[in-house]
Design a protein around this nucleic acid. Structure first.
Lengths: 149, 149
DNA sequence: GTCAATGCAAACTTTTTGCAACTCC
DNA sequence: GGAGTTGCAAAAAGTTTGCATTGAC
């Protein structure tokens, strides 16, 4: 059991922020399904299920902003599309996406950053956070040859 | 002199595609300024200058699609914003972007991929194309401490 | 002349913002 | 009660699509 929704709620409360039904539902979804590579719209769908009523998209985005400002959540771009959310607590991994089939695997941050840091340093970059997915071809797709899109 | 606009035009013609004023202008911009990290809208601005008349955004996107389908051009995502275009011929570098100041530097592909490939292989990925920028903090921004956005 | 390519307008997706109404503490 | 949150509506940016017209070959 990683982070419980209650931990997120408690962290918000500790910041003097108010706990509303929408925020609680969003925290629960993030706590329960943050491994599902949730974007804002699927986060909203699940949060609405939990809350039992509609939650406006702007409310979801504002909640995400708040959670990011407090440092509980981060977002990454896996593709041209929507940003994907994950808990800052779960920051120990990054993403590698197959450009053919879209499969996304998690790569431990230490591995990826360990490889990237020397390269970054030699180009005047101090910290590498890998805000995006690393894109490539998974073994399955690579065997089915053809020009990747 | 890397790739001349004429090479791009010739490649299109070789595919049986028609050479219009818009496409020729777009090819010229790509050939001349592909190091400028052009996105679709700045590509359009420059192409309109060369063509001496308006070019519709949809025409620009369709031209980009065509050039990508033929394999002459690729796009990468440097940030949440617009995709950046570069010539497939110029594929020998990737991008590292500072998440604080937005500065983007080119990193030779061999360096980056050399570092990334062992990591990718150990996770079942065969080819790594780095469709996105690697995000981090440049030395200047890193000295001015504070929480990155 | 034919078919590809364009322009125009409209729609789409993701995200942001202004503002009045609401509700958590 | 008052500030923080919300919903609604509108808008922004980036991109895609339908369709009639244009133009390359």
């Amino acid at each position: 059991m990683d982070v419980a929704a209650d931990d997120l709620v408690a962290a918000l409360r500790a910041e003097g922020l108010r706990i509303t039904a929408a925020r609680r539902a969003i925290c629960e979804v993030l706590a329960d399904r943050h491994h599902d590579h949730l974007d804002a719209s699927s986060l909203r769908v699940h949060a609405e299920e939990i809350a039992g009523r509609a939650i406006d998209p702007s409310t979801v985005y504002r909640a995400i902003d708040t959670l990011q400002a407090v440092g509980l959540v981060r977002h990454v771009h896996l593709g041209g599309g929507a940003a994907v959310l994950h808990l800052a607590d779960d920051d120990g991994h990054h993403h590698m996406t197959c450009e053919r089939c879209g499969r996304t695997v998690d790569v431990p941050a230490t591995e990826l950053l360990g490889a990237l840091e020397p390269v970054a340093l030699s180009h005047g970059f101090v910290a590498v956070t890998v805000h995006f997915a690393v894109v490539g071809l998974c073994a399955d797709c690579a065997t089915v040859r053809g020009a990747p899109s």
